[in-house]
Design a protein around this nucleic acid. Structure first.
Lengths: 338, 338
DNA sequence: ATCGAGCGGGAAATCGATTACCCGAGTTTC
DNA sequence: GAAACTCGGGTAATCGATTTCCCGCTCGAT
């Protein structure tokens, strides 16, 4: 089923070396041979075997990407951004999902390494459990972490400054008059979850407002709905809820409204990410925007510089996010400082 | 950077043949050699080179999957289902997005073929423009179309019976009392778009109800919102809207309600797919459920049977969907036939 | 004692593309 | 006119794992 370069060479009446040279153009051949080889290749429908080329060249022209889940719009957005970034470089992306499971993640990394990818971009699902597999992979090929990262700072990373982002959100709701705040996020299993939560705690305590016990579940719409119910069940509602991502925020807004709360009059809600349906939410969601394109571009750029097992200290590139104020949060109080 | 089987063999003091046999277990070796090879492999951190293995074996242990877009929850759901279906079979999935562009799709197919995937699962983005690339690929490797398909019926396919599904939806809203209906779907560029629309027209005209001009745009939430606005701008609202997928339906429900229409009292809305946020919609969406797990399983099974360039007539497996009635459609009129 | 079977191991071919190396013919240079 | 050089082309090595083919040894049967 495979037309090889030998077939092409035979059909053109030249050696495989000439055929290869004619097709790749990496050494001159006479116009005549070029012509005959080209014709033979076209007639036979020759398509070079990338596997053989990869073995010989010791490079596959692929990079692997591992994300926790492709059901989450944030990750699909970032995957698409990386794909766009790569599309004219001749490199193909091999995309894998770890389904939020460090074991599956390790297996995926293993098969990507076995397939000799030239580099890896990974958003490790677990800040602790992902450590060995990620460090091991980083020892073998250039590796850049994107968005999430493992603890310890031993591998290069590109992402958003989570703490700065959450701080923007907290200061914004406080400027809008909030006196009691709560954080609705995910269990502290990923770096994003941890940093957004710790950023929240720090900013809120610095501002001196009342901090209610956090609601930590999953980065999903369902958990947002659940969290909203939990808030409604309590004695009183907080003035503001800072959410770990937009999906939680959308679910939360929905269930709070269903419970009779007015958004933003009774409760301000701020999300994180600004991808997917934040603008289509009702009302449109105030949120912290992740500069996804920029992050993807930076990750690809950095990947080009990283060498496997490089003893040089790892780089950590934290891009500062921007707050996008829409209609789920009260604007700064009139006459306020800003 | 690569430990090869030669290194392992040398460290164990045996030939590469013995090392290979010890590691694969495909021929007996003495317990002693087995032990020494295993130890040497472990100590050196040997990981077989899948590229070399693929070249030698003439099989890569991968299958390629090409979908129009990973931003659409229906496709991510079906990708996840295929992944689950494959996870214990030892084959890896190489996932690509065509971004709804037949040119990108053809390029992706080309590189997957160059990488010598053992099979292909594809949801062709365009019913016409995708034809040459899909047929060409089907000539080289086993190929199964999943969900969408090209015209002409020349390549195997597994999917849902779109016409039957839409018919269920139309009959349901009519049983609920609808006398005027409209279809809000996507432009007729894919098989799904065409069949759902034609199924709608047939079912509606057979039932003898009034059929308003269709609204054809994209399979997106945004288009659903826009379609809702268009309906509101007209003289009067239809009794029911059948949507091409759930995203359109969710957007449509939202904008109709924003315009003051009550769902389902004033307008019944039915979606298609039943993935993603249909249950989380407000109110929960009535929709036609695609049996995604079953489709994925069937596709993988069929792929195992298909041979490249098989002259045998292509199979078309259409699974009949089920209507899931939730709260965006009026229930059958009391005293009705059912 | 001999023949054959069975067993474990090694050398080398194989997969397909690329390229280092070599060769012969033609051209330039002193 | 001979040495040096250029140019196009061919042969064979290379990448790493697997497997075919062959060899030598042992054991059992006759």
């Amino acid at each position: 089923m495979g037309v090889t370069i030998h077939d092409v060479a035979r059909a053109a009446g030249v050696s495989v070396a000439s055929a290869s040279r004619a097709l790749s153009g990496r050494r001159k051949v006479t116009p005549e041979t070029a012509e005959r080889v080209a014709r033979a290749a076209a007639e036979l429908g020759y398509q070079p075997n990338a596997v053989a080329k990869a073995l010989r060249d010791q490079t596959t022209g692929t990079i692997g990407m591992v994300v926790p889940g492709i059901g989450n719009p944030f990750f699909t957005t970032i995957v698409e951004a990386v794909e766009r970034e790569l599309q004219n470089s001749g490199v193909d992306l091999l995309l894998c999902s770890s389904r939020y499971d460090p074991q599956i993640e390790a297996r995926r990394l293993g098969t990507l390494l076995a397939r000799r990818v030239d580099g890896l971009i990974i958003s490790p699902c677990d800040i602790e459990a992902s450590v060995p597999a990620v460090l091991d992979a980083a020892r073998r090929v250039p590796l850049v972490q994107l968005d999430r990262h493992i603890e310890g700072g031993a591998a290069d990373w590109v992402g958003v400054d989570d703490e700065a982002g959450v701080t923007l959100a907290v200061e914004h709701v406080i400027a809008g008059g909030a006196r009691s705040v709560v954080f609705a996020g995910s269990r502290l299993v990923s770096s994003s979850a941890r940093l957004r939560f710790s950023g929240f705690e720090r900013a809120a305590s610095r501002a001196g407002v009342e901090v209610l016990p956090p609601l930590l579940g999953e980065f999903t719409l369902e958990w947002g709905v659940e969290a909203g119910r939990l808030l409604l069940d309590a004695d009183r509602l907080p003035d503001a809820v800072i959410c770990g991502n937009d999906e939680i925020a959308v679910g939360l807004v929905r269930s709070l409204r269903l419970g009779g709360a007015r958004i933003p009059e009774d409760v301000s809600v701020v999300g994180f990410d600004d991808v997917g349906h934040a603008t289509m939410c009702d009302p449109p969601l105030s949120t912290v925007r992740q500069p996804v394109e920029e992050m993807a571009a930076e990750a690809v750029r950095l990947l080009g510089q990283v060498k496997a097992g490089d003893p040089r200290p790892a780089q950590r590139i934290a891009i500062t996010p921007r707050l996008v104020v829409r209609q789920t949060s009260r604007p700064p109080a009139a006459g306020g400082a800003d």
